[in-house]
Amino acid sequence: MFKGRSQSSRTSEVTPVAEASEEALLAAAMQYDEAALGELYDRYETKIYTYIYHRTGDEALAEDFTAQVFLRMLESIRDQKAWHSSFSGWLYRIAHNLVIDHYRRKGRQGTVDIDEAAPTASEEHDPEVTVAQSLDAERLRAAIRRLTDEQAEVVSLRFLEGYSISEVAAMMNRTEGAIKALQYRAVATLRTLLYDQLH
């Protein structure tokens, strides 16, 4: 159905994968179409990787989990009910679950061992600030992990990934008003968690 970018497109009726709509791609992906699946992978791999990194602060973990997200995607791609509302939202949810499961198993509560903390790629050159920043970042991530699934999703997608309210609403299959309410509650909770730690 689709032709990969690598292949020369001779037949006019075939749509180049890069131009295909997500709907068409998904339809083909359900049949495990090689080209379609490849395109989807390429479109979302970086985003998922970034997301997981933001949530964990750990590069290795992010790489590992990203691969896992797409493998899991293959297992369930034929179950249209799971992702019919938003494919990307579905992928992010898979990622979120992986992160949560990971930390649940690890039993981490909030603080992270400084030695285990990933090296921060900060633009700050002042080590003190960098350290402070990394500590803060970790505290935030930890705090986010303590939110409900939905709150964590909203906060991550909204403030870590920068999606708009309408985009988040589409991804989570909720109304905009619901998203507003969620983000407010989520941030309020985060504030409590963070300030409790601090004070």
Partner: peptide
Amino acid sequence: ALLAVVELADQVAAVKPP
């Protein structure tokens, strides 16, 4: 207070993954 949290999140988000 809330906005401060958002700012922090923004900072975390600004950190590009390697």
